[in-house]
């Protein structure tokens, strides 16, 4: 086939559907552009959703005060102060322009910048997320291996049963039950003073995080464990495993050194996808355990119709999710040269 005539401008071809081999740099650039597009759409979506929600901060503030002073003038003044009197199109344009300059505005409630709210809340959520992933992975890997090695024997059934149960049980329920067990048997005192970070007061912080991290971790285990199990089953049937066994290697090193390393790769992808689920768990767990992280902040800011804060938090969470997925995909190609990025 001869060269096609000079192509018309087709962003579709340029950004989204490059065929043939792609270099890693090209791939990353393309994905970053896509992610920016997604972030823009999410920003628009959250902007629109917030404006559609009945009531706004100015009204909520006065309705909350409820001292009989809710005059239309007072609300109008408050709206003017918050910039809510401008037409929606102007608000949207300002929001977009400021976001591009990485200015997320000030929270309606605290009057502090969204960035400083984030700076306070983010470490808590990051700690909890890290611990949740740690528990999730720490449980999923041994369970997945045991389950695969004992395929269709009773440990497999029991472990899989528990994993599916953990997936089905609501995280707030497991957390509640855990609290009641800890209290009933007086396992340890949840006498946390203040809101310690792991690096300030490791013991205190761990006491505080213990139940939420296990509740959240267990909920995220099931998917990882199932993928690891099926990957292990597949890998264990491969020729090089037979070779390893034929060489006389003991079963332990066959499983741990030969099979596991290859089976772990796809698990990475699931871990990436789990981040989105963890965000959901965190809203619930931070709310339950009074952890002043992103999840709780997001929940209250939606409630209070704190537009700039909600917008900023949603954008940040989405950014973390899409970036994690991108990082996972790139890492995946790096760890497994057989995978061609496309």
């Amino acid at each position: 086939m001869g060269r096609s005539p000079a192509p018309a401008f087709r962003p579709g071809k340029l950004i989204f559907r490059v065929t043939g081999q792609v270099s890693v740099i090209d791939y990353i650039i393309r994905r970053v552009l896509l992610n920016i597009l997604v972030l823009w759409m999410v920003a628009t979506l959250v902007f629109a959703a917030l404006r559609v929600l009945p009531g706004n901060y100015a009204v909520a503030q006065f309705a909350g005060a409820n001292l009989g002073g809710v005059t239309p003038e007072a609300i109008a003044n408050a709206e003017k102060e918050l910039g809510l009197d401008k037409p929606v199109t102007t608000q949207y344009r300002d929001f977009m322009w400021n976001t591009i300059r990485l200015d997320l505005g000030d929270s309606f409630r605290t009057k502090r910048s969204v960035w400083s709210e984030l700076r306070d809340a983010f470490p808590y959520s990051a700690e909890l997320a890290f611990l949740i992933v740690l528990v999730g992975f720490g449980v999923a890997v041994p369970v997945g291996i045991l389950s695969a090695v004992n395929q269709d024997k009773w440990p497999d059934y029991v472990l899989r049963g528990i994993a599916i149960g953990a997936l089905a049980a609501p995280v707030f329920w497991t957390a509640s039950i855990a609290v009641s067990i800890v209290l009933a048997f007086d396992l340890f005192k949840i006498d946390v003073i203040g809101q310690p970070h792991l690096w300030d007061d490791p013991i205190g912080a761990l006491k505080w995080y213990l139940i939420p991290m296990f509740a959240g971790g267990l909920a995220s285990t099931a998917n990882t464990m199932r993928v690891l199990r099926s990957q292990m089953l597949e890998v264990l049937r491969d020729d090089y495993i037979r070779t390893a066994r034929a060489k006389g290697l003991n079963e332990r090193s066959v499983v741990m050194r030969h099979a596991l390393r290859n089976a772990l790769l796809p698990v990475l992808t699931v871990m990436g996808l789990t981040v989105a689920t963890i965000v959901g768990s965190q809203i619930v767990l931070e709310q339950m355990f009074n952890i002043p992280g992103i999840g709780r902040l997001l929940f209250t800011s939606i409630f209070l119709r704190d537009y700039p804060l909600t917008q900023g938090l949603v954008l940040l969470t989405t950014f973390v999710i899409v970036s994690t997925n991108l990082a996972v995909d790139v890492l995946y190609g790096y760890l497994d040269p057989r995978v061609r990025l496309a």
Partner: peptide, 16 residues
């Protein structure tokens, strides 16, 4: 559009 909806944390979207 589906990408954007999927990147939006489901529970947050639901809360809105």
């Amino acid at each position: 559009f589906v990408d954007a909806l999927q990147a939006f944390p489901a529970l947050v979207l639901l809360l809105l």
